[in-house]
Design a protein around this nucleic acid. Structure first.
Lengths: 343, 343
DNA sequence: CTGAAAGCGCTTACAG
DNA sequence: CTGAAAGCGCTTACAG
């Protein structure tokens, strides 16, 4: 290795490594490594010397070399279904804030709620040898603990995996969906539809359960409708439902996009909320507050869910024990003005 | 290297590498590499043999080893200000779809529109030696071409960098903002405020320019208000503005969150759109269509912008020439019902 | 068509 | 307090 005394030359050479810094500072590569990682004892004079050399040669650490040696990357994968769903965007932001503070990078992948895409994305994340995985499984995922084991540390988020007792972060969907349905029942509604997500999603099953419980206790027939949990899918489903059953007077929504879809479908049919249909939305969005009428909605604690998920995966990475069960963060029903008695 | 004849043993040993596969198949590591990459000639028999060994030992490629040897990672960084802004979420989705089809991973980082955070995130992306960078620069970024050069390939998205002639993808903000303002002028409005983003953002400057042009041509005084381009910031700014100038009859918005903030602020003051204030929003959101009134809005071609940005960075990565200038994708003004003549 | 050798940038034992 | 050696998993020349 030639001794480099000219920083500009080293910079322009393209590949500035710890060896370049070491040669410039007149020390060994390991000493440079020690200074940069702040581990082990280094004399103050040597430290200054090395730091000056780092600046002089314009050294930038190479995470790939570090990861290969460490057999692990300081990175956590987050595999969700769709980042354009504001719930997941907020979740990502909350998780990233916590992980960044702990020196971990968050790698985001969309599964498009498709099993084959999810498989590819999991393989991709796995190929980087991440420190952990956060997963909102695609509908009908049949992942086992063995398949998740290759990630070492993993936490499910938002959705569960049937038959797999993994650490998970969810909200008290059944309870709050039951409460939402009861708010409509209390206003006098009897024919209340639930516009749900895919029948096989754990979120649908849990939210549907709360809805059915409330309807059954009240002696009302449950009217569940399943959608692809997008605004456009819900929009069509609502129109089909309302045309088939003109006597429906109220609806509970499964998530934010479905809430939008219900209102869009109503507009298509020239129906008005709440006169023609009372509504409880799910997942608060800013516009729901200044909409006319302001939408009564289940507010999910998305920031708290993200923070908890981040803390759980950090606990696992640092070897602290984490319970293999759903960790529940409570949602709240915000009463606004989209419920009136049926006409 | 011991010959492994038992796949289960190899699997449980933890570290299954090309060598494990090679030993199992009775070939060399390079041959395994050739089969997996599909490059160079391999006899059909050897190929079958290797693929069987891959399955038998449960081999999973290690992207870190590959990247280190290749001195480059098949990854593109995307540094934006805030993923909870739906514009950026849609942009991410569109870019990722194109890149995924070409075998590239998209690495998302939020700068929070903060210079220090942006610096950290750029260093982080850079440490993975990505194949390229897509950047929506934080406000007041003073990045130079030299600083971007370490990424080799880069394209600016949505925002420009003053004085830097880099490839970029933007929309025709001036034109369409001028058109939006003219729509309000045509309805008879004279005192039209523009609720903008940060004064220093290139997006603000370009949109403000179109607004000012229209106002000046019409002989009206421009009334620009600057915000942090969030819904809550705009909400407060609008209330301050309307209290200070009770004669304002119309508003044009800078982006989606600001459009929400204007409507939220109006609700706080018990003002109604369009009777009390006509409005042109910016960046279409689903709720704007079924809102009462449906919001007249500038629809940004976010998918097309994402696709173009992805194609430009792919062109650069593959060595095809790309013009060092803003590439413009046109926005459209969607006339709906939030403009009426002033009362 | 296939293999032995070398090395990408870094850090972990192991010596001094 | 510091250094020489080795190796993480992979692939690129270079030989056969």
């Amino acid at each position: 290795v030639a001794t480099l005394t000219d920083g500009v030359d080293a910079r322009s050479s393209g590949s500035v490594t710890v060896k370049t810094v070491a040669a410039h500072a007149g020390v060994s590569a390991q000493t440079v490594s020690r200074v940069l990682r702040g581990s082990g004892y280094v004399s103050p004079a040597t430290r200054q010397n090395v730091l000056a050399a780092v600046d002089a040669v314009g050294y930038r650490p190479n995470a790939v070399g570090r990861s290969l040696r460490a057999a692990k990357t300081p990175m956590v994968g987050l595999v969700i279904t769709d980042i354009t769903n504001p719930f997941y965007a907020s979740l990502h932001k909350a998780i990233e804030a916590v992980l960044r503070g702990c020196g971990l990078t968050l790698m985001l992948l969309n599964s498009d709620d498709d099993l084959e895409t999810q498989r590819q994305q999991l393989d991709l994340v796995s190929s980087y040898r991440p420190s952990g995985l956060l997963l909102a499984p695609a509908v009908e995922s049949s992942l086992t603990k063995e398949e998740l084991a290759r990630f070492g540390n993993y936490v499910l988020v938002s959705r569960l995996l049937p038959g797999v007792d993994a650490p998970a972060v969810v909200t008290n969907e059944q309870e709050v969906m039951q409460e939402a349905t009861q708010a409509l029942l209390a206003a006098g509604h009897r024919r209340i539809m639930a516009v749900l997500g895919p029948a096989a999603a754990s979120t649908t099953r849990r939210r549907e359960e709360g809805y059915r419980t409330a309807m059954t206790i009240a002696g009302c027939e449950p009217l569940p409708y399943y959608t692809d949990q997008t605004a456009s899918g819900a929009r069509q489903a609502v129109k089909d439902a309302l045309r088939a059953r003109g006597d429906i007077t109220a609806a509970v929504a499964f998530n934010g996009p479905v809430t939008e879809g219900i209102l869009a479908g109503m507009r298509d049919m020239n129906l008005h909320c709440p006169q023609d249909l009372s509504l409880v939305g799910f997942t608060d969005a800013p516009w729901m507050e200044f909409f006319q009428p302001p939408i009564t909605v289940v507010r999910q604690p998305v920031e708290a869910m993200g923070e908890l998920a981040a803390r759980l995966i950090l606990d696992l990475i640092d070897g602290r024990p984490v319970e293999n069960k759903p960790h529940v963060v409570p949602s709240r029903l915000l009463m606004r003005s989209s419920i009136v008695p049926p006409s």
